[in-house]
């Protein structure tokens, strides 16, 4: 395998006496589509938070794009090209939909490439991403005027606007209808075709199975399976974790 884009090495995290992550190893190759599943409380979100810098891992290390990023603040990781969407959408309520996308463009993208991004370019990029998710007609609305699915699209669009190398989509589809799930899946595949590596965390199994090239299963803070999706779901340990 080529040099991995993301390398998680023996990462551990506890909350008081509770072990949330217990020595997780994970390598993600550039351009990969990875699915990450696990029952509630298995540590998926904690792992995402440790990778993205919202939490700091106590042991082990995280490398991104050939660089150790432990101890780095979340915004620095975003600037490096590691973006995430939140499980529950967290839009900036006082900004318009378009302005929500301006934020990562102004802060993350500009910081990465130096300040050679003009106001017009930022606007162009913003419109492009809004089109991509199908929110261009709502550019001047406030987030609170959006529907549930539009809010999730905005959440994704804002992560995309950081122009990441790796996008972590944390349960972007919970509570959506079948056709809406299809919509978002298509969007993610299109992004992947543009060269963005994607980690998808999802409860909807059909979506994970159709999207992922590789599947990782977390249970009680441990990785119990990692490999071809069709094989992983037949793994008895995985079946046990999900059924009982």
């Amino acid at each position: 395998m080529a040099e991995p884009l993301l390398q998680v090495d023996q990462v551990g995290k506890r909350f008081g006496g509770f072990v949330a992550l217990d020595g997780i190893n994970l390598a993600v190759a550039p351009g990969e589509r990875l699915g990450l599943i696990g029952p509630n409380g298995s540590g998926k979100s904690t792992l995402v938070n440790c990778i993205c810098g919202a939490l700091h891992n106590e042991s082990g290390s995280v490398r991104f794009d050939g660089q150790a990023i432990d101890g780095m603040a979340a915004h620095q990781r975003t600037i490096l090209g590691l973006a995430r969407s939140f499980q529950l959408p967290r839009p900036f309520h006082s900004l318009s939909v378009a302005e929500n996308l301006h934020v990562p463009l102004l802060y993350a993208v500009r910081a990465r490439f130096g300040s050679h991004l003009s106001a017009r370019e930022i606007n162009d990029h913003c419109i492009e991403y809004l089109r991509l998710v199908g929110l261009d007609a709502k550019a001047h609305k406030r987030p609170r005027d959006l529907t549930q699915v539009e809010m999730r699209k905005l959440e994704l669009a804002r992560a995309i606007a950081a122009e990441p190398k790796l996008l972590i989509a944390d349960e972007s589809m919970a509570g959506l209808s079948h056709s809406e799930v299809e919509d978002i899946l298509k969007l993610l595949v299109r992004l992947n075709e543009r060269g963005i590596t994607i980690i998808l965390i999802e409860h909807i199994m059909s979506a994970v199975m159709s999207f992922s090239q590789r599947l990782v299963v977390l249970v009680s803070g441990k990785k119990i399976a990692d490999g071809d999706p069709a094989e992983v779901v037949r793994n008895p340990e995985v079946e046990k974790a999900y059924l009982g």
Binding site: G53, R90, Y107, A111
Partner: peptide, 25 residues
């Protein structure tokens, strides 16, 4: 300015601001 945008994101949601690359501190 860009600073004003950054301030507004801090007021709205600091976690999301950091995730969007805003150096909140």
């Amino acid at each position: 300015s860009r600073l004003g945008f950054g301030f507004a994101t801090i007021r709205d949601d600091e976690l999301a601001a950091e995730a969007s690359g805003v150096p909140t501190l």
